[in-house]
Write a protein that binds this DNA or RNA. Structure first.
Lengths: 152, 152
DNA sequence: TACTGATAGTCAGCATACTGAGCAATATCG
DNA sequence: CGATATTGCTCAGTATGCTGACTATCAGTA
């Protein structure tokens, strides 16, 4: 009988669970109310001004149906603007607002501290190894999920 | 500017996303409709007959509020029985049904094949290293989430 | 025994994630 | 040009997961 601890899928869920909890705790203590998904989306919008939702989804490997709600909430919080594209009337162009920029800047230390905390218990070398192995497994499995990573 | 690929939290989400997709695909091809969470719960109920929901939650590190719905669905599918405990009238004792046992037995090859597939792209040694590092990080962060692992 | 605290379970509400369907607009090709 | 396919987005439905609150019950103690 295989133990749960021998199942990469189970370990993946546990690690993700802890990662999200750490992120929310650090960011919450810093006085912000932003989820990991919202943070990644906001940072990507800032780095790629005017991008459309499908491109955003591809850059961070979200499902396109998930993006709708995430962007809804970023707009609701005043961190992002969503407007119709002039080139393609199906598409929505996304821009970060000044408020969004301010939030990103102030939240960054908490985010980085969270990334550290997730790896506590591992040496620097082990942390690097873990990330390298995850990247490799993810690259090999990229096309297996409905929301693969897509380059710009 | 830190890239997403340098964030363990982001890598955790991506790996988990792929792991779930692979699981559902393999299990679906085998003709079953069972999620990773439902599978883990069912296997744990089988291994610990008569356990209550809080114990089940602890053994697989779920939140107790999530367990309610998961067990609901296992009962709905006829794979599990939930009955009031005689010792403690607050608690529910969980038992696997014959149908549940049959399902577990028939689904096992698909589950194991899924675990393999998640690690494709990694050598056997790398896969072992990844699992070891994940276990270590998880052990160190166990108490950081609302649903830590609890021994029986 | 009565009070106090802890525990088992559920529920409402919110935020990911996915499937599948559908609409509107654009691209492509005969 | 017109039929067809594709693309961007949204929506309905379902399943995790979480927070916080609530009920019922149990356990320990004054």
């Amino acid at each position: 009988m295989k133990d749960n601890n021998d199942m990469p899928g189970h370990l993946a869920r546990r690690f993700q669970q802890i990662a999200v909890a750490v992120f929310l705790a650090e960011v919450g203590e810093a006085g912000f109310d932003l989820t990991p998904v919202q943070y990644a989306a906001l940072a990507t919008i800032k780095a790629n001004p005017g991008l459309d939702q499908v491109t955003l989804a591809g850059l961070i490997a979200y499902d396109r149906t998930t993006i709708t709600g995430v962007v809804d909430r970023l707009v609701q919080k005043g961190l992002t603007e969503r407007r119709a594209s002039s080139r393609d009337r199906r598409a929505r162009e996304l821009e970060i607002t000044d408020e969004g920029r301010r939030t990103l800047r102030k939240i960054t230390p908490a985010v980085e501290s969270a990334q550290q905390k997730m790896l506590r218990g591992l040496s620097a070398k082990e942390g690097g190894d873990l990330m390298r192995l995850l990247r490799k497994a993810i690259a090999a499995g990229n096309e297996l999920s409905r929301a693969p990573l897509r380059e710009a």
